[in-house]
Design a protein around this nucleic acid. Structure first.
Lengths: 137, 137
DNA sequence: TAAAATGTAATAATTAATTTTACAGTTTAA
DNA sequence: TTAAACTGTAAAATTAATTATTACATTTTA
């Protein structure tokens, strides 16, 4: 899985812990140790889907738009990483029954696998993640 | 997930369809369209774990060592890809409570996620994969 | 004893992920 | 009303990960 998922969760958790002020992409990027442009790219996605709001200009930044218990890890997985569970299938030989069909067989199995993963990830809301972060001391 | 998983399943399926003769890494690599050295590397892992047997020299190659219904996708996932569900966590800022703890919080959640995935993948044996390959016509 | 296979390490090439640069647009405060 | 501090986004450069290639040792058979 790529690290956009982690950066999205990291950013949302950061915002959740600063409920009363705007957080800038610079602040978040300092916490996550990645480039602010990447944070803005990930947050732009979260904004398009209504999880956060942003404001440009001095004093601007990002804040949570919904309640932390209304966002779960499956929501964020779908946004940032849907399909990434699929194992890489190199193009294979269409002349061979195995080569010709392996990709679609595995694709269907892992479609189900991702759905199954969804049932698990739905159990974790951002609230739970924030609580776990606070517990780790 | 990396493509070793796919290559392992591809190879095992190939072997399952040739139960009475040895298959060489060249034959399998031709079906999977990857380099024979990669196939040998993946098969070497499967051999160490007892799923297949190999023989060097003229007339040598690989064949299945167990029954196709005794190997499931979770067995192969564990061998080739365990841990790959973990989202990438870049090193983050230890001075920030989020940066300091995000990695371990997500790690534990995805440890559970992989276990959960295991329950699903255990439902598919190589026999089922072979049947699905044969159906796709 | 030559040919055809596995076994494996080391290097080269390719592809994917990430960072960096650049710059346009927005908002605020002096 | 304009400079500063932000977001927004595209494009290029860099780095990391994956894959292919080369090389060669070992085994087995005819």
């Amino acid at each position: 899985m790529n690290s956009d998922f982690t950066l999205a969760i990291h950013s949302l958790t950061f915002l959740a812990l600063q409920p009363d002020r705007m957080s800038t992409s610079d602040m978040i990027s300092e916490s996550a140790c990645v480039h602010p442009v990447r944070i803005r790219k990930v947050l732009s996605l979260l904004k398009r889907h209504g999880f956060i709001e942003s404001k440009e200009g001095i004093g601007g930044g990002f804040h949570f738009a919904v309640d932390v218990s209304e966002v779960n890890l499956w929501d964020i997985y779908k946004l940032t990483s849907e399909g990434s569970l699929q194992p890489k299938c190199p193009e294979s030989n269409e002349q061979c029954i195995v080569g010709a069909n392996m990709q679609s067989v595995l694709f269907n199995i892992f479609l189900g696998a991702e759905e199954h993963l969804g049932l698990y990830l739905k159990n974790y809301t951002l609230k739970e993640v924030v609580d776990l972060i606070n517990q780790e001391k």
